[in-house]
């Protein structure tokens, strides 16, 4: 018994050591979501650069941490000059840049987006494997799943819909949908005449009249895309309904989504108190 224990422990140590010996030493991330996962999991000095957007408070929940890293703008040339042995990218990263980096002999790992809460844990585990930091990844996943359970809401609840710049709404099969339903809201995307994400006419939103409308924080500078969020009809809707914004915590499938869930729980309480 004892011996076998020692053997298994030794084997585990060996595997870990092998993994660490194999682990990349200079990692550059060029995608907002891989930036966050890498910053959470990377060993000291392992991550040498994150994308510039990771330092933008409007998009990145880890903008303060990102300030400590040199930033890149996602160009093949500047990334190559950082001499990475691994580049982290998203599946939607510029294919020209990705293939150029691979031609230059740099390994590029592309991570898929997380479209559900279950996939958040998968991404964390995947990043742990890539960086050779499985143990840290497992710790993170355990904490995340405990938090999730604590924040689970009832099956049915206030009716909510997304309304983003250009009249864009989120459908089923998105992380936003999963967050909303997990927090105890009913997502009324079917009432908007669709199942998937896409543009939805303001008048359909007015007819659906949800209890809560989730918008976005305006960016600096003007745009016609965001102008619709100031449309008198939408303002009238938000006045009668509850309005909130999906901040940076909503953007990527990382454990930070628990903060979004906590916000949603407060919104639900406020709406139900109002009713």
């Amino acid at each position: 018994m004892r011996l076998s224990r020692i053997i298994s422990l030794a084997a585990a140590l060996l595997v870990t050591a092998a993994a660490q010996a194999d682990a990349p030493e200079r990692v550059v991330s060029m995608n907002l979501c891989t930036d966050q996962l890498a910053m959470m999991l990377a060993a000291e000095g392992q991550l040498v650069s994150v994308s510039a957007i990771a330092a933008d408070p409007l998009s990145s929940p880890m903008h303060a941490e990102a300030a400590a890293y040199p930033q890149n703008r996602g160009g093949a040339e500047e990334i190559y000059l950082l001499q990475p042995d691994l580049v982290l990218a998203g599946v939607w990263s510029d294919p020209a840049t990705v293939s150029m980096l691979r031609r230059l002999g740099i390994e590029v790992a592309q991570l898929d987006t997380a479209d559900s809460l279950a996939e958040v844990s998968e991404r964390v585990a995947e990043m742990g494997r890539i960086l050779g930091r499985e143990a840290q990844a497992q710790t993170l996943i355990r904490r995340f799943e405990t938090d999730l359970e604590a924040l689970a809401g009832p099956h049915e609840g206030p009716r909510a819909a997304f309304y983003y710049p250009n009249g864009y709404t989120l459908g089923r099969g998105t992380l936003g949908h999963d967050l909303l339903t997990h927090a105890g809201f009913t997502h009324v995307v079917e009432e908007l005449g669709r199942d998937a994400s896409g543009r939805v006419a303001l008048e359909l939103l007015a007819v659906a009249a949800p209890d809560m409308i989730i918008g976005t924080e305006p960016y600096p500078g003007a745009s016609r895309s965001e102008e619709i969020l100031r449309h008198p009809a939408l303002r009238a809707l938000v006045e009668t309904a509850h309005g909130t914004v999906s901040g940076p915590d909503w953007v990527c499938g990382t454990p930070h989504v628990v903060r979004a869930l906590a916000g949603l729980a407060q919104d639900r309480a406020a709406i139900q108190a109002g009713q």
Partner: peptide, 13 residues
Amino acid sequence: LSPNPFAVSETVF
């Protein structure tokens, strides 16, 4: 030159 990420795509409008 706009700091707004949506502005760039609005040339078409």
